[in-house]
Amino acid sequence: MPRWPQSTANQPSRVKGIQVHRPFVYGSLATPFPTNTPRPSSIPPEHTHRWTVYLSPLSPSHPLTPWLKKVQFKLHETYANSTRMIESPGPFEITETGWGEFEVQIKLFFVPEAGEKSQTLWHALKLHPFGVEGSEERLKMERGGEVRSECYEEVVFSEPVEGFLEVLTSPAEMRGKAGGGGKGKKGGQMVGPDRGAELPVRDAPGVVYSQEKEQAQMVLLREAGKTVEALMKVEKEKLREKEQRREELGRDGERG
């Protein structure tokens, strides 16, 4: 029996057919211990790197607090207290020392308004330069000694709960205020510090993920698509030829 709408008062209803996403980045940054300087005695001698695994907002204007409650990092079991929980406002990062690469489990817990279950990400911790041998990124890593492995990711809330949608779609300056205060005039669509999901327009120092990059990605993919199309044409031609040949052979075989 379909529920009568009012009865959903105690059970938050989802807004159908809508998707809201928020960008964030996660990754790791590793630096080897300098060989010449002595290091603190508290660090075991076999440890070669100091690394930080983090989950961070894209920029200060993309805060995570509206949707993220806490983050749990699960390190390798050999670490003491391998499960570390970090509550909302704080920088979601763990700094440790070690010698080995492993997969870090990053579990995201969402704010209670969202009414969503926690989600898990996996990040392969990188201590040593990676990538194609001789590529620019790799060389940079080898030179600088700093190894950063970072992923851009978007969390997608499909059909969010009403209340949560409101939280996600009300600008920061309105949020928290008692309703009605921030009506203002029509032209009052000023961009507050919270940019929500909007990406910065172009690359800048400190801005890695921008619409420009996105566009570049699109171009890359489109180019690849064109290549594929061209290849497909060739292949189709070939296929037709081959089929013809087969027909011929088949007919020959019949005759013989």
Binding site: E153, V155, T169, A197
Partner: peptide, 20 residues
């Protein structure tokens, strides 16, 4: 654009996913 809202055509399964 600002709030990252989209109305996809296909059927949605409510919940959280990551884009990747």
């Amino acid at each position: 654009v600002r709030f990252g809202i989209s109305y996809p055509q296909e059927r949605l399964t409510s919940g959280v996913q990551f884009r990747h």
